[in-house]
Design a protein around this nucleic acid. Structure first.
Lengths: 346, 346
DNA sequence: ATGAAAGCGCTAACAA
DNA sequence: TTGTTAGCGCTTTCAT
């Protein structure tokens, strides 16, 4: 039989309310009373029952974070930041694993509705661009990442187009003339593949390079293996290229791996840049250039926005766009513009 | 005002109890009644209040997973598996980030005591070997990883000594004669550093190699950067070596990075093997050999044990030891035993 | 097969 | 400064 507040109150010779006051840091308590209660708590080994408190307060002090999977470093690193940021403002994070599937996403949206959490931060991978109405939920919700829906919700994202553009321009500056866009998904609405492809095209244009559809490689999902496969396909098809803009780091790692296997030198034959700047990027061979989204900024902003909503803020939906930074490392840094082009036969 | 069961009951013209029965899949319900209740639920958009259910049932359906941080791929991949396994048996996982600190560990142990979770799976990094008594908690607890405490709790681990021994023997078989043990911590009790060092010594012995304290490098914590620094120190000190057994993959990645920077060829000059076999291991250059602990097995077993305890199992503490597998990749695979030794001056 | 009523442990009015 | 009381929304006997 677990110890309850009533037991503590009895032991300390006070009322339940007083115990509650002590637990909640209520100010107007006679020190002696507080002392007695604290002693009783310690002696009895009392622990508050959170479920009861949650029921009574109508809040759980937890916020959900729906993401595809923790095995993906980008999301794992994000989750870590979210936990830290949430803790600072007194919340805990409950991770909802969607598996990047529609079902998983729907389940997350629904489970938050069950008030197991006070609100949800949501990477909507697995939903379609026209699933906006699903996001018209009756609890605090902050959308993360890039997809744009019609839904009237707070949104924290980064400058995808500008960042992709910067990555592309960077490769061009290194002397690349035929730059691959790896990870495009031609069918999509306004997700990050689309936005990053848009930035890629802008980058080409501003560098005076022609857009060649043959250099646009569709990859789904964005993993190490699919990245490696994608670039392998391209090499096998005989298309010439001397630079790769991978739309995330995982694919870029796959690219480095495949190029290495085929004895294609990076950055000499092919320069590579990724996107996300996961912790591991600098420790690959060669160290991977990447786009660092303002992850801390995104995490902090998302938590802040969500907590504001939880606290009753009812202003119109907001949009926050984090800064990014291009981290040029060895994988894309050439002493001077190279002239060589790889023969794609592998 | 949120919709409650009472509202649903009224709307459906039944009692609260009947609504509850429908929600809990109670069998003896007239189909027509169930139907009416379900319609009412849908029309009202009713969602069950989990806090109330938790309070009433004395359970939350959540289990805690205390780990150092999600930014560490090993733990992130583990957490992912735990979430999947727990879901299979109807539990959710609440991640507790300890930061590998003592304070963090204590907080996790304590917060579980507050019955926010029904039990805890615990990577006790940050605690001392003699902190066993802290683990004598009054809720279901499963210890993960390698440290051995006197505490009477369930424990799921792997064959650290045997695995480290296998890794060392493997390097010896590839022709290594001077093998570094990276990550040792001489001061510790029975944590994984100690066990893996023990295995390393056994491996040397069985390969007929002498133990040389100069080849034992202390590193703490086990990260990419500290791994790189550790091997850099060794190189700078002028100690000769031709193989590295890194006690986790992160350090091994740091080693690959540092060796690459210094133009030391892997595996020709120095063969390298890691430990954990994180997803990224096969995608580094060269692909990293590693020890794969039976992660799925560990996750499944831990969840199973914990849930049994939550369900009231009171048998004596158990110990489960998962299988491991050595994954030999390019970083340690030599065509034939090499004779070269690296000059450590770097 | 369904209803009535008690109470899980806590916090928030309201009193005193 | 502290006590009394009334629920928060649900599940669970115990009836019927």
């Amino acid at each position: 039989m677990p110890v309850t507040m009533r037991d503590v109150a009895e032991r300390a010779g006070v009322s339940i309310k007083t115990v509650s006051n002590v637990l909640n840091g209520y100010s107007y308590l006679r020190p002696a009373t507080r002392e007695r209660v604290e002693v009783a708590i310690a002696e009895l080994g009392y622990r508050i029952n959170m479920s009861a408190r949650h029921l009574r307060k109508g809040r759980t002090g937890m916020i959900g974070l729906a993401l595809p999977e923790l095995a993906h470093p980008y999301f794992a690193e994000f989750a870590d930041l979210m936990i830290v940021e949430a803790e600072k403002v007194g919340f805990r994070v409950l991770i909802e694993r969607t598996g990047a599937t529609r079902d998983g996403a729907l389940t997350s949206l629904d489970s938050s509705q069950r008030r197991i959490t006070d609100g949800l931060m949501f990477f909507p991978l697995g939903l379609d661009p026209d699933d906006g109405e699903l996001l018209a939920v009756d609890y605090p919700l902050v959308l993360l990442g890039e997809r744009i829906f019609g839904a009237p919700v707070d949104h924290v994202t980064m400058a995808n187009v500008e960042a992709a553009r910067a990555a592309t321009v960077h490769l061009a500056e290194q002397g690349c003339r035929r730059i691959v866009a790896l990870g495009a998904r031609l069918d999509e609405g306004m997700g990050s593949p689309t936005l990053r492809l848009e930035g890629y095209r802008e980058g080409l244009a501003s560098a005076g390079l022609a857009f060649d559809p043959a250099l646009v490689v569709e990859v789904d999902p964005w993993t190490r293996q699919t990245g490696a496969d994608g670039i392998a396909r391209l090499l096998d098809s005989g298309v010439d290229f001397d630079g790769v803009f991978a739309m995330n780091d995982s694919m870029a790692f796959g690219v480095l791996h495949e190029l290495h296997t085929r004895k294609i030198a990076v950055p000499e034959d092919v320069a590579v840049i990724g996107f996300d700047d996961v912790d591991d990027a600098g420790f690959h061979e060669p160290p991977l250039s990447s786009i660092a989204p303002g992850r801390v900024q995104i995490a902090r902003e998302a938590v802040r926005m969500l907590v504001e909503r939880i606290d009753g803020d009812t202003q119109p939906p907001r949009l926050a766009i984090a800064d990014f930074e291009l981290r040029a490392r060895e994988s894309s840094r050439r002493p001077q513009p190279a002239l060589s082009k790889v023969d794609a036969a592998g």
